[in-house]
Design a protein around this nucleic acid. Structure first.
Length: 443
DNA sequence: CTATGGCACGGATT
DNA sequence: AATCCGTGCCATAG
């Protein structure tokens, strides 16, 4: 009797779909929050602190490359896309190793224990930098303040590394283009100029004179003195105000503080939150058909599973709380299934996008190929009629007419665990005749 | 005997 | 409360 009651949630219940949808709409950060709160209030859930190799799925007992398949398969050139799903673990330096850095290359002890702007930026630009330039980039990034602005002089850096200042400038230019854009600038003015330039390159329309306003009227801008700004630009005050509004709305003189656009919310007590990426797409080398590496940051470390003790003790649960326990177990089950589903969908989605939008990823906004959600969902076969689609295919290519139970078996192998009876329903909905009648039709 | 379809139940959703 | 959906049971068609 208990067996029946606690059997796992079937993958295709509407509850499952609905929950998956909500989870899909969440960012990694949001999701890990949810998981944490779920873990706190649901005793049936358990977090195994286990690292698994992203490629071969074998458990990893120590950090570093997987001993079985040695490395994340980034050198596999046959596939157009390679997945490296890595744990969202920006707090320790192992994650930096994955970006191509070794710990020695980084100035030590400069990493705050929590989310760190320097590490965050390093991850993004690692592949764009020459090996010899990386220590310099690390130096620059560890010398920026909370606002994201460079606090030491170029001269200091250039002397330390024995390179010319112009080389440092080149590196800083790369850094400035990482998110948050403008980070590593030497002044708010510089940051604004870079942001403006990037906006323009991405095809946004920029008010005339915006650049001049930043270059020449910076002091007026920061004090909201539109009249004086207008005078210095030799335009009328309303124009000047327009430009100033545009700048304050779209640009952020302190790129280290919250993401631009959130400038208004800056007055709360929360420390600045950097836009955490959920997915990082990397181009490892500049060869024509080089694979893009898609790194998917999982929302949690370790594996989430059902606490086996909880399942065992369900039998002995006190009568008054048995309902609650069963609910907990179901919720736990649901959450786990949905997260797996989310990961799976995310991988397939990114695989498709990396290929379809390759131009956009490599060359920028102008190469964005328009699509609709409907089209993508069709390719990924995650729209409602997934089952029907599979069913149609199976019947189309069957050698001998498949009975409903055979179809049910096949589908369950593909991950759709549905009963024979349900297959019959879908079949009739699709207007497919029963097996014995199809046989007559063929011969 | 097997494959299928009607009916009704339970549960989850709105 | 109304409804939708997957599924089990059982009658029946082949």
């Amino acid at each position: 009797m208990f067996q029946h009651q606690i059997q796992s949630i079937r993958p295709l219940t509407t509850a499952h779909l609905a929950q998956t949808m909500t989870l899909l709409g969440m960012t990694s950060a949001e999701l890990s929050q949810k998981i944490e709160s779920e873990l706190a209030k649901n005793p049936a859930l358990e977090l195994m602190e286990e690292r698994r190799c992203p490629t071969c799925k074998k458990p990893l007992h120590e950090p570093g490359p997987c001993p079985i398949c040695s490395r994340p398969s980034t050198n596999n050139t046959e596939e157009p896309i390679v997945f490296v799903s890595s744990i969202a673990d920006r707090y320790n330096q192992n994650s930096l190793k994955n970006t191509g850095y070794s710990a020695e290359e980084l100035p030590d002890d400069n990493f705050a224990p929590k989310e760190d702007l320097a590490a965050y930026v390093l991850r993004q630009i690692a592949s764009d930098l020459d090996i010899k330039d990386r220590p310099i980039a690390a130096h620059v990034l560890t010398s920026i303040d909370d606002d994201g602005l460079l606090q030491i002089s170029l001269f200091e850096i250039s002397r330390y590394h024995h390179v010319s200042q112009s080389q440092i400038e080149e590196i800083i230019e790369i850094i400035q283009r990482a998110d948050p854009i403008g980070v590593g600038s030497q002044s708010p003015q510089d940051a604004l100029l870079v942001q403006l330039k990037v906006l323009q390159e991405n095809g946004n329309t920029i008010p005339h004179l915006a650049e001049k306003a930043i270059r020449d009227g910076m002091s007026f801008l920061s004090r909201h003195q539109y009249v004086d700004l207008a005078k210095s630009l030799k335009i009328n005050p309303t124009e000047a105000e327009k430009i100033a509004k545009f700048i304050s709305k779209n640009l952020n003189p302190f790129p280290g503080r919250a993401h631009w656009g959130d400038v208004r919310q800056n007055n709360n007590d929360n420390p600045p939150v950097y836009h955490q990426p959920d997915i990082i797409v990397k181009n490892l080398n500049s060869k024509k058909n080089a694979p893009l590496v898609v790194e998917i940051l999982l929302p949690l470390r370790g594996t989430l599973n059902i606490n086996p003790m909880f399942r065992k003790n369900l039998k002995n649960a006190p009568d008054e709380s048995i309902e609650q326990w069963k609910k907990d177990l179901e919720n736990a089950n649901l959450l786990i299934k949905c997260i797996q589903q989310r990961n799976n969908t995310m991988q397939r989605l990114m695989g498709y996008l990396a290929e379809y939008q390759r131009g956009f990823i490599l060359k920028g906004d102008k190469h964005l190929r328009p699509t609709t959600r409907a089209a993508v969902s069709k390719v990924l076969e995650v729209h409602e009629s997934t089952i029907s689609a599979h069913l149609n295919e199976m019947v189309k290519f069957e050698h001998q007419p498949l009975t409903d139970s055979q179809i049910s078996k096949q589908l369950s192998k593909m991950g759709y665990k549905i009963a024979r009876r349900t297959v019959a329903k879908y079949r009739s909905m699709e207007g497919i005749l029963p097996a014995h009648l199809r046989k007559n039709l063929k011969n």
